[in-house]
Design a binder for these strands. Structure first.
Lengths: 169, 169
DNA sequence: CATGATTGGTTGAACGTTCAAGTCACACTA
DNA sequence: TAGTGTGACTTGAACGTTCAACCAATCATG
């Protein structure tokens, strides 16, 4: 709970103004992208990232635990989401041949078609809502600042941003 | 759906790197703040902003529709959330005296105590996860960039960021 | 001054996420 | 080689959000 010993520095006017804007951005940008995907593809952002991650793997498959890191979600959330994608016929699951504890998720041909079909629309929306609004420098700065923040909010996935791989691979 | 006429410019390496980091930030920062509030105060971010907005009003009360703008949520979401806060004894609702269509939400004494008690912890977390990591310039830049993005993702609430008031007030 | 439209808000069902438990395969250890 | 532990998932219930009705009060029009 609140520790009364060390007093809290409230936000200055400038800090508050910046924080309000940042808060609004972190609330509206993800949901705007989510809305586009739901509308045009019938899936949400998390499911999109699952399909995208699988499609970028050379084998079009990944272990569930690796996929969870790439898609930035808990294993439980992933398990439910892959269940839905499986029911739609875009993903299959099978126990790993080498280690019966692992489960491999793999993109079906239909899933491959699906992601190929919807990716352009999604990228277009990312451009429209973010990238095309900013100069290359602004975008790079925003990226660098974000990386800094992620270093505190989610150190595990900060590593992913630097190397493109989960830690220990 | 995807309009095949105008080809999509895929992301460059720099754009992609920035976008991955920004995405990670927009996913992890809100949920980290949410976790702190749930843990220390038993409420979520949206409910926090409801209490905060009410506490900042001179009358400690707001119309539901105004409150929805300040707390950045739909009226339906607000109605459910205020219902929960009402059950906890922190908020009350009453029909407006002037216009029977309007409902006024008002902070109870217990609600006032609650927000006074939990605000410091929340601010401390905002500092820890964001503000203290950045230089004043970095923070201001991030704020300005965010404002720009919100101008496209949510033009209505962009106005709020400039004036501190909902449009038309 | 009726009546149709609009505004402000509520409700309930469907859906997705979280959380706590549970299962199963394999790895250690005595 | 039985027993204990651990890692990798899966499951189901609880909870919050969304979405599509719905209702009730007021406004505008003829």
């Amino acid at each position: 709970m609140t520790s009364p010993d060390e007093p809290v520095a409230w936000l200055s006017d400038q800090e508050r103004a910046a924080w309000m804007a940042i808060l609004a951005m972190t609330m509206t940008l993800p949901s705007a992208l989510d809305a586009q995907l739901k509308r045009d593809a019938g899936i949400n952002t998390f499911e999109y990232h699952i399909l995208a991650a699988l499609s970028e793997s050379p084998t079009r498959s990944l272990q569930m635990s690796q996929l969870a890191v790439f898609a930035q979600g808990s294993l439980s959330r992933l398990s439910h989401a892959v269940g839905r994608l499986e029911r739609s016929g875009w993903v299959r699951r099978q126990p790993s041949a080498h280690d019966g504890r692992h489960t491999e998720a793999l993109l079906t041909p239909a899933g491959w078609d699906k992601i190929q079909q919807i990716a352009p629309g999604h990228v277009r929306e990312v451009r429209r809502l973010l990238i095309d609004l900013l100069s290359p420098t602004q975008l790079a700065d925003l990226g660098a600042t974000s990386r800094l923040v992620v270093g505190t909010t989610a150190p595990e996935s900060a590593h992913l941003l630097d190397t493109g791989l989960p830690p220990g691979i």
